[in-house]
């Protein structure tokens, strides 16, 4: 993505807030972590990639599709959306559906024929360890299981790009470990972009890292390079150096 800028608010809502300022970075196959404090612009960036926000400035070029405000679009947004997996920050769960119905419905929305969607849903649920809960309603799931159901819907179409907005928020260490295992089992060619403000996530996943703060990219590279930037084995020192404030720390287990 190149020179992405985005503002919220405007004439009637008071002074516009600039969520992203000239953000440019590249996405690679495997896991890419978008690290930053609250309000850094992570969700805005992910929503732009998920095409649920209109690009105001800059352009996004991914998988042969180019879309943005200043450029000529190439490729089909519809095809891009078919090859996309997305777990929004708020989850987007339909509590009145069972796990299988929910995931199959999203599969249909992604463009999968209705006849094959249930089978794809079963496969996705098995991948995230919810194979035995296919007929359980989403309202009956725990927080961690619900998040896994969300990941199942995001991978049901075996996406080329998987966007996960704070997928580990609210999960206990055991649930987070389960989540890492699910991500580890994905096709290595899938590009995963997940946002988090937990350094533990990045360390556990050994992901490529983009550090975002105040709407700008402060770092882009492997997590090992980020650690070196701080001069120590962990990422904490580098994070403080780049962002200016300490990262969110998990309560002791």
């Amino acid at each position: 993505m190149k020179a992405l800028s985005h503002s919220f608010g405007g004439l009637r809502r008071g002074r516009p807030v600039r969520a992203l300022r000239q953000v440019s970075f590249g996405l690679h196959s495997g896991i890419n972590a978008l690290l930053g404090p609250n309000g850094a612009g992570k969700t805005t960036l992910l929503r732009l990639l998920a095409t649920t926000l209109r690009v105001q400035h800059g352009q996004i070029e991914i998988g042969g599709v180019c879309f943005g405000a200043d450029s000529t679009t190439s490729g089909s947004l519809g095809q891009y959306r078919q090859r996309l997996g997305y777990l929004p920050q708020r989850g987007g769960y339909l509590g009145h559906l069972t796990c299988e119905e929910y995931v199959a419905y999203v599969a249909w929305l992604r463009g999968m024929p209705g006849k094959v969607a249930p089978a794809a849903a079963s496969t996705a649920l098995a991948k995230v360890g919810l194979g035995d809960h296919r007929r359980t309603k989403l309202t009956a799931l725990s927080g961690g299981m619900l998040r896994r159901a969300g990941i199942a819907q995001a991978i049901v179409n075996e996406p080329d790009l998987l966007i996960l907005d704070e997928p580990t928020a609210g999960l206990d260490p055991e649930q987070r470990q389960g989540f890492y295992e699910v991500l580890g089992g994905l096709d290595p060619s899938t590009a995963v972009l997940l946002s988090t403000h937990l350094l533990e996530d990045v360390e556990a996943l050994r992901a490529g890292v983009v550090v975002l703060a105040a709407g700008t990219v402060r770092f882009e590279g492997p997590s090992t390079e980020l650690a070196e930037l701080g001069g120590g084995p962990g990422l904490r020192a580098a994070y403080i150096k780049l962002v200016g404030s300490p990262p969110v720390q998990l309560p002791p287990a």
Binding site: A50, G92, Y93, R110
Partner: peptide, 22 residues
């Protein structure tokens, strides 16, 4: 409104199906 309140509309907007069809 249930779809929007639950945040599902955000997910739906990222999919390939037309809003008119849904």
């Amino acid at each position: 409104s249930r779809g929007r309140r639950s945040g599902f509309y955000e997910l739906e907007a990222s999919t390939a199906r037309s809003a008119l069809l849904v």
